[in-house]
Amino acid sequence: MQDNALSKDWFRQIAGGDETAFRSLFDTYWEHLYSVALMLTKSEALAEDIVQEIFLKIWNKREELPDVEKPEAYLFIIARNHIYNVLKQQQREEQYRKHIIDWFEGAKENPENDLLFKESAALVQQAIGKLSYQQQTVYKMVREQGLSYKEVAEQLNISPNTVKNHLVSSLKQIREFLRGYASPTVLAIAMLETLR
């Protein structure tokens, strides 16, 4: 770890738009922040995203940096607050998803709903079929096989960030496709499938 004097120098340089200083800060603190995020989230992909977002916040707020008296404390406060907010959001989403999934699982027991679920599954597959080959590959490896961004990146010889970008783009295209073709009930079921 660098001492506070050097960190303040970094902050002044970063405030002036010095990308090399920002990279030095990133390289010094990335592993520690990632370890904390991984311990709390139990997800490599989410921990990587969190750390990237923390440093993005630092960069976007760089005009504030020259006024910071304790740079290391400032960095960890931003990290702590961001991780806390992500965990709270994740908890809300999980509770919502569990509620919706439970409802749909119950609805699956009703034979009258069987056609709706088959129709929604077919629509999702049709939407996946509209993706590029690379997007389909990434989507299936992450969403269907349950691989992490890092595992997919290693198998496809691309960066984890590229994997994430492909997945985000794929989900956006799938949802746009579904909005254009599905009835409200089928759309709700199909959208749920993309959240699993």
Rank of each mutant, 00 (worst) to 15 (best):
S43N: 11
S43L: 00
S43F: 00
E44K: 05
A45P: 12
A45E: 09
L46T: 10
L46H: 03
A47T: 02
D49P: 01
D49R: 09
V51M: 01
E53L: 06
I54G: 04
F55Q: 05
K57L: 14
K57A: 11
I58E: 03
K61V: 00
K61P: 01
E63H: 14
E64Q: 14
L65S: 07
D67R: 15
V68D: 07
P71C: 04
A73G: 12
A73R: 09
Y74T: 09
L75Q: 01
I78R: 12
A79D: 11
A79F: 00
H82I: 04
Y84H: 06
N85I: 02
N85M: 09
V86W: 01
K88F: 01
Q89E: 13
Q89L: 12
Q90G: 12
Q90V: 04
Q90M: 11
Q90T: 15
Q91E: 11
R92W: 06
R92M: 07
R92N: 04
E94Y: 05
Y96R: 07
Y96N: 10
R97G: 00
H99W: 05
H99G: 08
W103I: 06
W103P: 01
F104D: 06
E105M: 13
G106Y: 02
G106H: 11
E109R: 12
E109F: 04
E109T: 10
P111S: 01
P111H: 00
E112D: 14
N113S: 14
D114H: 10
L116G: 09
L116E: 14
F117K: 03
E119P: 05
S120C: 09
L123M: 14
L123V: 08
L123R: 06
L123D: 11
Q125D: 15
Q125P: 08
Q125W: 04
Q126F: 13
Q126K: 15
G129S: 14
G129Q: 06
G129W: 04
K130G: 02
S132G: 12
Q134F: 06
Q135S: 12
Q136E: 13
Q136P: 10
T137D: 10
T137Q: 10
V138F: 00
V142S: 06
R143K: 15
E144Q: 15
L147C: 10
L147K: 13
S148W: 01
K150I: 04
E151A: 14
E151M: 07
V152E: 05
V152Q: 03
A153K: 01
E154W: 06
Q155N: 13
L156G: 05
N157A: 14
P160L: 06
N161F: 07
T162Y: 07
K164R: 15
N165L: 08
